[in-house]
Design a protein around this nucleic acid. Structure first.
Lengths: 223, 223
DNA sequence: ATCGGACTCGACAGGGTGTTGACTGGGGTC
DNA sequence: GACCCCAGTCAACACCCTGTCGAGTCCGAT
């Protein structure tokens, strides 16, 4: 699938290879051009020539740096997913302190992380239908969020804060799916959407009622 | 946008025009070919030539019947949306009889309608990113479902069966968005998904807790 | 000096879309 | 019967975009 590009650095790169050299500037320039163009038009309306020209190189030279247009987007997506993974952080480990505030923080971070890269994320959503690699990468990110939420729900049930009910994994999938779709509609302005200002609170409300059957889950006092 | 095709019939057609003629067979053949090919590969991997050949005509002749490949998909989508609109039916008018059963019926119908045309719906989801017309049409379907659910929630609140809370419209958007995304993941086998067997019950549980704060909403006895 | 790898691009092949212009065949009209 | 119009048909063309090939430059290491 990906060409033999001999990455010598530790981090797997979707571009050429790691290790400093003149070409790095070009690689960065291509990425920057992609981000800039994504701000003004859809991914499908950007040709490889546009990317190459924007980076000051010819089209064949583009292929020296990336195997395809999609690979550029994937590189951009890699950054976002890293950030997204970090965003969850340890929020859910401190749930007992103040569940409502912690859950809210989680949802707000999801919202902020993707909102900070909306052009890239929206573009990925567009090509997800046609690009298996984007689909896979996205599925992995979602899977990590689902697992974290699932674990948190199970912990809340174990400490008696949340009642039993749906399998925690199914509930985690449903809630994360809701967030993803609502988020998308809000930012893409595509169909019925919740106002950007309200979206975190709306989602939070559904999360809390689904998990606790109330919007004011019990706090376990520090002991 | 759409070519001057002089539709003479009542129903707006995305194909040529209404009124019987030899060409109708071809139009139907193109549609049937599209459905068949969609069952075996992605929309993006189907060329206009494939569609034309499948219908026994040449590529230029295809353009006599449809202005583009997307128009074929749109025609297929029209049928599904009609069915989807009918599916909601009057279920929500009879909520007081047995809310849990009625909501379940609504979700099950949503599931059954789209599941019955999964290839078309999945293809539409794929091109939604690149085709504004598909996006618009889909948004309209969703909007109608959202409105119906919103009205039902407001009625339930008015009769005291459901507590006040989020604006009914926001809640309706969030719940329908969840259904859409969960449905998609389940049928596309794309990332974390709920098993097809369980999906209706999982969604129902979240709907009921979000709307009623309990999974067993009160029944109003007929009087 | 010369070798090899990083880097570059002109030119080409291939596949897709959408359009043009010429052609056919049959149903009405005088 | 001569005619015409129009639905229907397609070979050929113009384009655009992707991806590849091969020939070339530049530069640091040997």
């Amino acid at each position: 699938m990906s060409p033999a590009r001999t990455p010598t650095g530790a981090a797997p790169s979707r571009g050429r290879r790691a290790g400093r050299s003149a070409g790095d500037d070009r690689e960065v320039a291509i990425l920057a051009t992609a981000e800039r163009l994504l701000r003004e038009r859809a991914f499908g309306d950007i040709s490889i020539d546009d990317l190459a020209r924007g980076a000051g190189i010819s089209r064949p030279t583009f292929y020296f740096y990336f195997p395809s247009k999609d690979a550029v987007l994937l590189t951009l997506l890699d950054r976002v997913t890293e950030e997204a993974d970090a965003a969850a952080g340890d929020v859910l480990d401190r749930l007992a302190e103040d569940p409502r505030a912690r859950w809210r923080e989680l949802i707000a971070r999801f919202h902020a992380t993707f909102g900070g890269h909306r052009d890239v994320v929206l573009a990925c959503a567009q090509v997800r239908g046609t690009n298996a690699e984007v689909r896979r990468l996205w599925a992995e990110v979602l899977e990590r969020w689902v697992r974290a939420v699932q674990a948190a729900i199970e912990l809340e049930r174990a400490r008696g804060a949340a009642p039993d009910g749906l399998p925690a994994r199914d509930l985690a999938i449903a809630l994360n799916s809701m967030n993803e779709r609502v988020w998308y509609a809000t930012f893409a302005g595509d169909g019925p959407a919740v106002a950007e200002r309200d979206v975190v609170d709306v989602l939070l409300d559904v999360w809390l009622t689904a998990i606790y059957r109330t919007t004011a889950p019990p706090v376990t006092p520090r002991g």
